Structures are given as C-alpha cells and as structure tokens.
Amino acid sequence: MAEQETGTETSLADETYRALLEEILSAQLAGGVVIQERRLAARLGVSRSPMRDALGRLEGQGLLVRNGKSMLTVRVITLKDYLNSLTMRLLVEPTAAALACPEMTESKLAELAAMLRSIEDDPDPDPAMIWRFDDALHQGLGEASGNPFMAETIVQMRRYTTIFERQRRLAQRKPGLEDHREILAALAARDAEAARQSMTRHLEKVRQRVLSTY
C-alpha cells in the first residue's frame, strides 16, 4: 500500500509540475506573481505535498525565485536574461540542427512539415498551434542530435525566451515561417551545413526582431 501511495504522490507531483510549468510558459502565472501555495493547491485539486514537490522543482530550475521577503515568486525574465538565453541557443542549436540532419526520421520530418503547412494555410492560426510547432521543431532537433546535454540546454534556454516573448506578446501571428521552411528543407535534404546556417539566421532574426521593439 505504501508503494502504491508513493507512486500516486509522485504521479500527482509530476502532473502538478507540468500544469504549473505550462501556466508559467504561457504567462498565466506572470513574472513577479507571488506563489500562494494553498490557493494553487486548491485550484488544481491537489494536496500540499505534491504542490510543494512541484514548486521545489520549478525553483530548482530557476523559474521560481525568492524575493526580498523570502516569498516564492515567478521569475521575471528581463531583456538581459532573454538575450543571454538567445546567445546560449546560438551556441548550441545550430550544431544540434547539423547533428540532427542524418538522424531525424522521415516520419518526424513529415509531421513537422504538416504542422507548418497547417499554420501557413490558416489565415488566423491558434497561437497555441504555433507554439506547439515551435516546441516540436526546436526540441525535436535537440533530441535528434544524440547529445542529451544539448537537448537539455535547448529546453532550458527556450523556456526563458518563451516566457519573455509570451509575457510581452512579442511573437508575430505567423512568426518565422520562411526561416522554418528553410530549416525543414535543409533537414529533408540531409544537408548539415545548410541546417546549421538556417538555424543561425533564424535565431539572429529573432534577436533583431526583439531588439527593434526596444
């Protein structure tokens, strides 16, 4: 019975973590908001034990921080944080794209191409669909690179850039479609150098687009 209860608590903690992570990434829990543990637990319908576990994980990942009064708050992603994260992505993602070129499966490439076509064909695509495609492409490249350290770095750095963009509504309605088409074309051609260059251009354009708003 104890093992079953432990397993249930672990599952609840994982579910709670994923729910809170999505709320932070989507800016439902905005930067600077004070975390009210009891209220969050009641809203998500979980006990305080899995809630504390989930909050501890998010704090360990730097997405929750302590303010001057030692209260747990959602981290505010500054422009400096954003640019530093993009710099890390520029160091890692072009290489990940090159390494993924011979490894990404045809089925995964077809899935990504279908997602991109769906966005292109929709005059007013759901923003959630755009973010799902962006996640699938960038994280998929990290996974296909065969380097787990690269994959984890991409996940972590993209969390910061995603929070910044979504909280400030900087993403365009159909952002970077041409860039994404170029990246997918390079992957489909198994051209590692073209994939590297396409990813570099894409991230540089993202940086310039954000800087132009300041």
Rank of each mutant, 00 (worst) to 15 (best):
L91A: 01
G60M: 07
G31P: 04
R75F: 13
V74H: 04
K69L: 10
Q36F: 03
V46W: 04
G62S: 02
N147I: 02
Y17K: 04
T6G: 11
R117L: 07
A171I: 05
M129L: 05
H138D: 11
P127L: 01
G140I: 13
A171F: 03
G7S: 10
T95S: 09
R159K: 09
A192M: 01
M104L: 12
L211N: 13
R75H: 14
A110P: 06
Y82R: 07
R173F: 00
Q172A: 12
S107G: 00
L211T: 10
A27V: 06
D124Y: 00
R207E: 11
A54M: 01
A144N: 08
R168N: 14
R18M: 03
M88T: 14
A19P: 08
L141K: 08
A186N: 04
P50I: 13
Q36E: 09
Q167L: 04
E165D: 15
A128S: 14
R66S: 10
A96R: 03
M88P: 10
A54Y: 05
S49G: 05
E106R: 01
P123H: 07
G140K: 15
R201G: 00
S118N: 10
V210H: 01
L203V: 13
D126Y: 10
D121Q: 08
F133K: 06
S107E: 13
T10E: 15
A97T: 14
N67G: 05
T87N: 13
R75Q: 14
E3W: 05
R38E: 15
M51Y: 10
K108I: 09
A144L: 05
R75V: 14
T105C: 00
T87H: 15
Y82I: 11
A114F: 03
S26V: 00
I24M: 02
A136R: 09
R66P: 02
D126F: 02
R173D: 11
A96N: 08
W131C: 02
E182L: 09
A19K: 04
V65N: 09
E93M: 06
R201L: 07
E143P: 05
L187A: 08
P123R: 01
Y160Q: 04
A188I: 10
T10Y: 02
T162K: 06
M129S: 12
P50C: 04
L29R: 06
S11P: 02
M88L: 11
V34G: 14
L20D: 04
R181Y: 11
A97N: 14
G142S: 07
D122P: 11
R43H: 10
E178F: 12
G146H: 10
T73Y: 01
S70E: 08
L86A: 01
L86C: 11
L86W: 00
Q172D: 12
S85V: 04
L90S: 08
Y82D: 06
L63M: 15
G142L: 02
S85M: 01
M150I: 03
M157Q: 13
L12Y: 11
D126C: 06
M88I: 15
L40N: 04
L21Q: 00
L137W: 12
E178Y: 14
M71D: 08
R132C: 07
V46E: 07
G68K: 04
V76A: 12
S26Y: 00
A189F: 02
R48L: 13
I183G: 00
L29M: 11
R169G: 02
A100I: 06
P148A: 01
V155H: 15
T87V: 08
K108F: 08
L187K: 10
P123S: 03
L137D: 02
F149W: 07
D14V: 07
E193T: 03
V34W: 14
S70M: 15
E193K: 12
A171V: 08
